[in-house]
Amino acid sequence: MTDEISPELFEHLVELAAFAFDPEEAKYLRRELNNQLKAIHQLAAVPLDDDVPPASHGVPYTDQNSPPLREDRWEPCDNPDEILAQATQVEDRYFIVPDIPHTELE
C-alpha cells in the first residue's frame, strides 16, 4: 500500500499546524498517521443510506434537558489580573506578542 500522507503532504500539515520536527520525529509521526488512516479506511465499507444524519453528539438535546438561551449580557470578571498574570508578557493589561509578519500595502 502506498502511503496516503506523503513526505510533502506531511510537511504541508506541519507548516499549517505551526510545528517543527527533527527527521526521526517526522518519520515516526508520518508512519503513525498512515497506520491510523489504514484503520480509518474501514469506514469506507459502512453502508450509509442517504437518510443517515451526521451526529455532532450522541445524546439528543431537547427543551427537556437543555437550558433556555440566556440574554447576551456582559458580566465583569472578578479576577482579571490573576488571569493576565498567566501570560509571559503583559504591558498595561495588554498581551504582548512579537512582530506579526505582514506586508505593507502601497
Binding site: I5, A18, F19, A20, L29, E32, P98
Partner: peptide, 28 residues
C-alpha cells in the same frame, strides 16, 4: 524573529508527540 516563529517554537517545544500527532490527523 516574529509571531509565527514564536508560535512554531512554542508548540514544537511545549507539546509532546501524542498531541502533535492528534493535531496533524485532526487537521488532515
Amino acid at each position: 524573529s516574529d509571531l509565527r516563529e514564536m508560535y512554531r517554537k512554542t508548540r514544537a517545544e511545549g507539546f509532546g508527540l501524542q498531541p502533535k500527532l492528534r493535531i496533524l490527523m485532526g487537521m488532515y
